[in-house]
Simulated scan of single mutants.
Amino acid sequence: MAPQLRALRRSAGLTLEAAAAAAGLSPAHLSRLETGRRQPSLPMLLALARVYGTTVSELLGETVADRDAVVRADAMEPTRAGGWTYWQAGASGRGMQALRVHVPHGSQGDIVRVHPGEEWLYVLKGRLVLRLGDTTHRLGPGDSAHFDSLTPHRLAAADHDGVDLLFVHTLLQSPTAALCLGPAASVPH
C-alpha cells in the first residue's frame, strides 16, 4: 500500500507537506505511511482518499476491472486499519463509497472527525454510540443515521463485541477534506 500512497499523492500534484496538511497529518507521519513504517487507520485512509480525489480501494491498490454494479460477498476481502475491519460493499471509482465495517470496542479513542460531504450508516449488529456535535445518539440493529459530515462526529462501539455497520460516504476533494481532532481539541464531542 505504501508505494500506492506515494504514487497517488504525486499524481494529484501534491507535495508531502501539502497533502499532510490537507489530511490533518504531520509531514513526518505521512512520510512514514508512504514508506510502510506505519499503517494507516481507516479515518486516515478516508482522509487521504478525499484529499487525492479517490477511494480507499485505490489507496489499497485494489482495482476493479470494470465498474460492475454488483459486488459479490465472496469477492469482499477484509481490510484492517486502525483497529477497524472493513469490506468494500460497492464498486470503486464512484462519487460515494460503500463499506461494511466492524468497529471494535475502544478502537477510536477520542477522535472526532470533521470533513466535507455526507455520511449514512446502518447498524447491522451491536450498539453504536454516535456523537454528532453536542448530541449523543445510541443506535441499535436496524437504526440508521444520515448527516452532514461537517458536523463534528465520532463513532464508537457500545458493546464489548463491537458493532457492525453499513457505511456510505461521499468522496469530495477539498483542501480541508479531513480533520481528526484529539481529546485536547476545542470541538465539542
Results as ranks from 00 to 15, higher is better:
M1W: 12
A2E: 14
L5T: 09
R6V: 05
R6H: 05
R6M: 06
R10Y: 13
E17G: 07
A20Q: 07
A21T: 15
G24H: 00
L25S: 06
H29D: 03
L30H: 03
L30Y: 05
L33E: 01
E34Q: 13
T35I: 01
G36C: 05
S41R: 00
L42C: 02
M44P: 01
L48Q: 02
R50C: 08
V51S: 02
Y52T: 00
Y52E: 03
G53C: 08
V56W: 01
S57P: 12
E58A: 14
L59P: 11
D66G: 13
R67N: 08
A69C: 08
V70G: 08
V70F: 15
V70Q: 13
V71H: 05
A73V: 14
A73I: 10
D74G: 12
E77S: 12
T79F: 15
T79A: 11
R80E: 15
A81P: 02
G82H: 02
G83E: 01
T85I: 08
Y86L: 06
W87R: 14
G90T: 14
G90H: 09
G93K: 11
R94H: 11
G95M: 10
G95T: 14
R100D: 11
R100C: 05
H102L: 14
H102T: 07
P104F: 04
H105V: 09
G106M: 03
S107R: 04
Q108N: 10
V112K: 01
R113Y: 03
V114E: 00
P116V: 05
P116Q: 04
G117Q: 05
G117W: 01
E119G: 06
W120I: 15
Y122W: 14
L124R: 08
K125G: 05
R127L: 10
L130G: 02
G133N: 10
G133E: 14
D134S: 11
T135K: 14
H137K: 09
H137S: 06
H137G: 08
L139M: 07
G140K: 00
G142Q: 04
G142P: 10
D143I: 06
S144G: 10
D148N: 12
S149G: 12
L150E: 12
T151A: 04
R154N: 07
L155D: 03
A156R: 11
A156K: 02
A156M: 03
A158C: 13
A158M: 07
A158T: 11
D161I: 09
G162V: 07
G162M: 06
D164M: 04
V168P: 00
L172W: 09
S174L: 05
S174Q: 11
P175S: 12
T176E: 12
A178Q: 09
L179C: 12
C180A: 13
L181T: 06
L181V: 15
L181D: 04
G182T: 03
G182H: 02
P183G: 15
A184I: 09
A184W: 08
A184P: 09
A184V: 10
A185K: 06
A185C: 10
S186P: 11
V187L: 12
P188C: 07
